[in-house]
Structures are given as structure tokens and as C-alpha cells.
Design a protein around this nucleic acid. Structure first.
Lengths: 136, 136
DNA sequence: TTTATAGTTAGACTTAGTCTAAATTTAAAC
DNA sequence: GTTTAAATTTAGACTAAGTCTAACTATAAA
């Protein structure tokens, strides 16, 4: 498993113009095998749990770099901490404020918004739509 | 101006089940005369600028209370700080990540999303749609 | 007036994230 | 292989937003 995966990830980094250092590869290995949501903190914990020691500064630097290069997306879901998503396709989110659970709403269209079907046992607290602009 | 306004705001607080203390009224006077976007910090600065001394704890407590009572809305626009909005009607936002400018998109319908007209001189960086759920 | 309750306060504390300057790694040149 | 230069990583100090606590103050009710 590891040999092949690692080289795949190394290639993925190189193709995005990211020099594949040991730490970046360790982080890529943690993230890119499946789509997932995580925070800087949860990522570092997972690394440490797997015996990989990476400093906080490197975790933050690497995430910033991966976001710049389009390898992960930044999610503004909570005002207190930043979430990341390895699913970089255009999609949206359910966020359960009681459980903290974050799940994808794949390929929503404006029409679907009208009759959005939500997970069982939950009610909508609010819907936030934020259009982030840049000056050009 | 002040006598009438103050009593209007006192009434507004009472109607929402908020006991109108001096500090809460001072905050209500700052906020409710017009719809506006603000942070806990900018609110406290504005109060101090107007010679009204209110502690940080009270600013946070009061905002939490006002949110609970539906007098202001909490906006998750930025992962670093919480924005508030005195416009509690259902609407969405443009957020200019270069200037920090936050403006309303009033009464957007799913259909309007398809052909959203954005402010001159800007491009869309991303659109985040978050559906916040509660367990019931 | 007293007493109980609610609200306010300063400042210590927490948490997420940034910054800095030194140490390490790597690539390239010799 | 060594040396050198550039990029990366690191620990830990620092910042900013927000929470907590325990003392103090104001208010309401008896």
C-alpha cells in the first residue's frame, strides 16, 4: 500500500507545484486517500497519533500552501476555527450545530434549494449564503 | 431625538423579554437606529468613542442575549471573528475579502442565484452555502 | 430597609492562529 | 564528497477573539 500511495501523493504535490518534503507527504498521506473534513488541530492530532511529529507552524504553513495550490478548500463554517475539505469540487454543506457533524451537499442547483431534503431527526437552524468577492 | 428613541428601544427590549439595563440600552441605541454589520470589538470601540464605558464581558453577554432573543443575527463570514447584523430578515451577503466590506443581498431567490449581479470592480472568489441543522 | 436576584466588571485564562529567529534539510555547484 | 545557498521546519513567544470567575453593583420585591 504505502510505496504506491506515497509516490501517487508525491506526484500530486509536484503537479501542483508543491515541493514534496517529508512533512508535506505525511500530511498528504493523511488527507488524500479519501475526502474528508478536518481542522488544523485535528490534523496535527492525527499525525501525532500515527507517530508523525510535525510542528504546529508546519501544519498551518502546509495547509495554507495546499489551499493556495487548490489541493484543499477552506470552509468558513464556524467563527472560531477554520475547517478544511479535501473535496475541492464545487459543493456545499450541512453543518449540525449540535453534533459538529459536517457533511457534503453535492452539486446543489438553485432549483434544489427550493426543496432541500435534510437529514432525518434534524431541523434547519439557518441557511447562510456568502458570496466572497475579490477586487480585480 | 433621544428621549423618544430611548424609550422605543427600551420597549423593543422589553417586548423581547430582555430587561433594559443602562448598558443594554446604550448598546441598543448604538445598533437599532439603522441596520448595520459589526463585531463585538467594533461595537465596544463605538461605545467607548461615544463616552459609554461598557466592559468586554458585558458586550459579549449582551450580544449573546440579543442573538438568543432574535434581536440581532450572528454571521459566520470569517473564521477569525464573529460578525453581527441588525437586519434580522432573511437575506444573504457579499463579503469583499480584500476590503472587508460586507453588504446585504436582499431577498435572493434560487432563480436569482443563477444570474447573480455582483458589484463593479469585483470577481467572485467563492460562494459558500451552509445549511445549519439542529437535532429536534 | 433588608434581602435576594440579576447584571456588570476587571482581569486571568483559553484557543486558534501568526511570527520570528535558529536549526535542519535539500539541491546545486564545485 | 564538500561547500554553499535556498527552502523548509521548528520551538516557543506572541496576538486576537472570546470565555470564565469571583467580587461588586444595581434593582426588585418583601
Amino acid at each position: 500500500m504505502n510505496k504506491k500511495m506515497t509516490s501517487t501523493h508525491a506526484l500530486k504535490l509536484k503537479n501542483s507545484g508543491v515541493y514534496p518534503t517529508a512533512q508535506r507527504l505525511a500530511i498528504a498521506d493523511m488527507l488524500f486517500d479519501r475526502h474528508q473534513h478536518f481542522t488544523a488541530d485535528s490534523l496535527q492530532e492525527a499525525l501525532i497519533f500515527n507517530g508523525i511529529k510535525v510542528s504546529k507552524a508546519t501544519v498551518y504553513n502546509t495547509l495554507k500552501l495546499f489551499v493556495e495550490k487548490g489541493l484543499v478548500n477552506e470552509l468558513v463554517i464556524d467563527s472560531q476555527k477554520c475547517f478544511y475539505d479535501t473535496n475541492t469540487s464545487h459543493h456545499h454543506h450541512f453543518y449540525n450545530i449540535d453534533t459538529g457533524e459536517l457533511t457534503d451537499i453535492e452539486s446543489i442547483t438553485p432549483k434544489m434549494l427550493e426543496s432541500l431534503s435534510i437529514p432525518e431527526g434534524t431541523t434547519i437552524d439557518n441557511i447562510d449564503l456568502v458570496v466572497r468577492l475579490r477586487n480585480h
